[in-house]
């Protein structure tokens, strides 16, 4: 696409309409451009508050309306971009559950590190079905129209982001990995190391 545009620029004067079309729609559609997959870039989007009261408490939310990432009470937020339809996500569900248990069973981490999942292109039904199928204890959210998926750079599933709180209500990406967790302990160790958060290994 870049070659096509360069070619065009060399041969013809670029019409303002073409430029607007390219800048607006092109940036919306091209993976990795205008997204937030790069490290140290702030990331924010809104999600519907979970209906489950335990999940609301877990995330530190007090209201029932939509909330932004910045409202999650944590120092680190791990986001799994998954899909009910993705064989790797299905295979990895047990490992991600173990990751959640590792965090929850560690007193020094459980308040600081929170884990959520976002079902890319999945409806509420599909997310709930996945949650029930694999007895997932952490909050999962649907992204039926891929709007969040587009915002974060149209990653493949599963994909894991580590976000660290900078300032009062802004999270920046410090970790980004596509594919399997494989070893949840090692995964958590790497993630904590990259975040700079101290783990007392309780």
């Amino acid at each position: 696409m870049r070659i096509l545009l360069n070619d065009f620029l060399l041969k013809k004067r670029l019409h303002p309409l073409v430029l607007i079309c390219f800048l607006f729609f092109g940036n919306l559609c091209l993976p990795g451009q205008g997204g937030c997959t790069d490290k140290e870039k702030p990331l924010d989007f809104t999600l519907s508050a979970p209906k489950n009261a335990d999940h609301k408490t877990y995330l530190g939310l007090t209201r029932d309306d939509r909330f932004s990432l910045g409202q999650i009470k944590a120092e680190i937020v791990i986001i799994e971009i998954f899909s009910m339809y993705c064989p790797v996500c299905q295979r990895e569900a047990a490992n991600v559950n173990t990751l959640f248990d590792l965090i929850q069973n560690n007193r020094s981490l459980r308040e600081k590190v929170k884990l959520i999942g976002i079902g890319a292109g999945n409806s509420d039904f599909e997310v709930d079905f996945f949650k029930e199928k694999y007895t997932i204890k952490f909050p999962l959210f649907s992204d039926t129209d891929f709007s969040i998926h587009k915002k974060i750079g149209e990653v493949r599933t599963p994909h894991f982001f580590g976000l660290a709180l900078k300032g009062d209500c802004e999270y920046t990406i410090f970790y980004s990995q596509s594919g399997e967790v494989s070893d949840p302990e090692k995964f958590l160790e790497t993630l904590l190391k990259d975040s700079g958060l101290k783990n007392s290994h309780e």
Partner: peptide, 24 residues
């Protein structure tokens, strides 16, 4: 012709927008 080229550029960009394909 230039406007059509603009629309084509948009369509190419749109077609490249992937669904959340599995890493498998």
């Amino acid at each position: 012709r230039i406007i059509i080229a603009g629309i084509l550029i948009f369509l190419i960009g749109f077609s490249e927008s992937a669904i959340a394909g599995s890493a498998v």
